[in-house]
Structure formats: C-alpha cells, structure tokens
Design a protein around this nucleic acid. Sequence first.
DNA 1: TAGTGGTCTAGACCACAAA
DNA 2: TTGTGGTCTAGACCACTAG
Lengths: 234, 234
Amino acid sequence: MKLPKYRFISNEIKDNISSNLWQVGYQIPSETELANQFSASRMTARKAVDELVNLGVLERVPSVGTFVKEPVSQSSLLEIRNIADEISSRGHVHKMTVLSKLTLIPKDNSDFSRSLNSSTVFKIVMVHWENELPIQLEERYVSAAQIPLFLQQDFSKVTASEYLSSITPVTEAEITVEAVMPTKILIHHLQLDDNTPCLKVTRITHSYGKPVCYAVLYHPADRFKLTSHLDLAQ
Amino acid sequence: MKLPKYRFISNEIKDNISSNLWQVGYQIPSETELANQFSASRMTARKAVDELVNLGVLERVPSVGTFVKEPVSQSSLLEIRNIADEISSRGHVHKMTVLSKLTLIPKDNSDFSRSLNSSTVFKIVMVHWENELPIQLEERYVSAAQIPLFLQQDFSKVTASEYLSSITPVTEAEITVEAVMPTKILIHHLQLDDNTPCLKVTRITHSYGKPVCYAVLYHPADRFKLTSHLDLAQ
DNA sequence: TAGTGGTCTAGACCACAAA
DNA sequence: TTGTGGTCTAGACCACTAG
C-alpha cells in the first residue's frame, strides 16, 4: 500500500507540470538536485524521471538537462494526427482556408447520414496548406445536436479535430483508405495535374459509442503518404 | 560507439527468444542469475529486463519470475489481413500466381536493402486473384540469412506472411500507404485501365527488433479499400 | 525456508555541452 | 572547467510465493 519513493517524486513532477508551474520547455531540476530535494539517491530520482520520459512527459538531452516536453496531440496508434501539428513538426508553415460551411438535412441514403444518424448535420469544407502548397482537402460532417457551436469556431486557430476532441473524446475510429482520381473540384483546390491520384481517407470517429464526426480527407499522392508504426507485442 | 552492458544483455535475451530457444511462457533466468552470467550487477541485469518488459516481450510476475510473453497476433490493429483469408471470408475464391523468384545482392541504395540490412535477399513477385480478377500484386523481399528456405515454399497453400510468422513472430511493423499511378507492368498484371490509380502499401515487419520482411503491395483502386477499426480508449 | 522481483542507497567513472 | 545525463557497482531490506 506504500507509494514507492520514485513514484512519489514523479507525481510531484507531474503536479508541477499539470499546474503549469513548469511549462513546456522548462528545464526541470537535475537528477542530483531532485535526489537532494527528496532525500533520495540519484538512482531513485532518475527512476522517477525515467517514468515520465517513457510516458512522453519529459525529454532528456544528454549533457544538457531534462525538459518538459510538448505533449503529443492524439493517441498512439495509426494516430489520427493533427495535420497542423504534423506540418509544424516538419518545420513548415500551416495555413487553413475554409471553402464552405453548410447546414444540411441529410437524405437517408448519403454515406455520412447513415454514419452520423442525425437529423441535422453541419458540413464544412477546408483546405490545409503546407508552405503555400495545398496538401489536404477536408470535408467534415458533424451532428448538429451533439456539437451545436461547430460552425462558429475559427478553425485556423484550433483545428476541427482539436475542437471536437476538446468537447468529446474520441474513443473509436473507423478508417478507410482508398486511391482515387481527383474530381475537377479537387484538381482546382489542390492545384493538381489531372493525372495525379489522391489518397482518400474516410474517417468516422465515435465517442463512447456515439458517432461524432464523419470526415473525408483528400491528399495529393505526390505530396502525401500515410505512415504508421505498430507495436504488436503487448 | 560502445554498447552499454544492459543493452548487450537484452540483445542476448532477444536472440534467445527470436531463435525459439526460449519459447512463449519460458521462465528466463532470475535477475541475480543474469547478473552472474554476464558479470554485471543486479541493477544492470534488471535494466536489461526492464527494456524488454517495456517492449512487451517479457512479463514479470513478482515473487515468481520473469517469463517470455505471448505476442499478440498480427490481427489486432490496422492489421493487414491475410489476403487469402479476407477473400475467402467474402465467400470468394482466392488464387495466387508467382511471377518471379530471385536471389539478389542488394545495392546499398535500394529501399529494401536499407531496411533489411542483409547481404543476400530473396525477392518474390506474386499476383493474388479474387474470383479470377487480379486484386493485388505483391513484391516481397526477405533476408536470406534469416529465412533460408523462403523461395522453396509453395505459397499457394500457405501465404508468404503466414509462412514468415510461423518462423518468426511479427512484433513491429512500419506501414506506408500511398496512391500511385500504375506502371506498365502493373497495368498488365492487374488488368487495369491506364487511368486507374493504385493503392501502394509498403510494409516492413520486424521480429524482436530485427527486420524480417519488406513487402510492397499494389491494389487497383477500384477493387480495393484499406479499412481499419481503432479502439483508442485505453 | 529459499528464491523471486521491487525498491533503495552511496558511491563511482564516463562523454559531452556550455560557459 | 563545471554540470549534465548515461552507465555501473556491490551491497541492502522488503513482501511475496512456492515448496
């Protein structure tokens, strides 16, 4: 029932971070210092730091120090990464333009209405840019009943998926990936040759069993790959 | 450039597992024993075990011992299902034809040689058919040193991925998905129009850290979608 | 009771980065 | 030169399990 000392230390560190006392980029006390502060050996202090490094909360830089790490946006597996983060993690500039916002009463035969199962649906169409080059056209449908303020958000500051997951966590996702030839609209907005295929990613996200969002993402083949790393052990 | 001792120990353990000397459920030597075997302190031996526990390769049972853990079967997440199973689960007939079998001494600049890191590589090219319609062209590269009998298998009975996982379990995978226009060879073998894009799936699988297989799978866009279901909760 | 993993200590030496 | 993390040692005590 007793808390190990290293766990106590790592909890204290976590508290300092979650209370914003130690913000992203902050250099935490050295292992020796932590050991002194908590009257522990360096090995024990180090083990506390180890835990948080493995959790992705801290980052070690040899010979320099240990720092509070930028939290990774979404979950680990075939992670639905935030496109804005992904672009900026490549050191590039992300921009977003909205093509249209609509409120729809879906016909029952459309794909998204079957999935969302809602009487009123918001639709938004956006283009994401990486360094002035369009990289993704995003069509997104959400249930108006669940996310009533969806269309009033400014998605150039907080991406649509960030906004949605701040309201309601994503617990499940269905993903479909296809290769398609672009429509005229896609050719125009993504500035394509007519012979460039596109990756079409259709993603239905659920929150505790309820469908939240139906999204269709188009990416020019020559500017985009989908990658994922799987750890099958465990 | 020197390998830390704990890494050396964990490599030795991994070797014992991947060579099937220590099978699933096997109780590995205790930490004290490992320390003696490798002339290390118990803390160092323990750190080696820690690594593999975190990787999900080993499992500790307090007061009892440490055991080789069951790897989760390949099917769980974003699984690329066995194409034969998938086709027959749709009630269709699967057939496979081999286009070529080769033994290669890879040049260092090829994608697969960088990944496989092997001096001799087997390559096999196959086409999978669903009800007399070609649905996938598979290019597969494996390390000759690791899988010496690869080319002698009859993959119409046991698929290549089944054979490989019977020899050595897949513990990790890197997957890349792209949309590409087909080459002439693809157009011919997959019986395509020249305007049909293809999904190109590149998959590198590892077994306990060692690369096992580099596979490139091409699917006609109009006959194939990649789907996957994710449970993000927990 | 003997053996296991879980925790902890008080040292030590190293390579490296920054001042 | 100083401080950092990276590694390593040779002990120690504990709670727990199994024979």
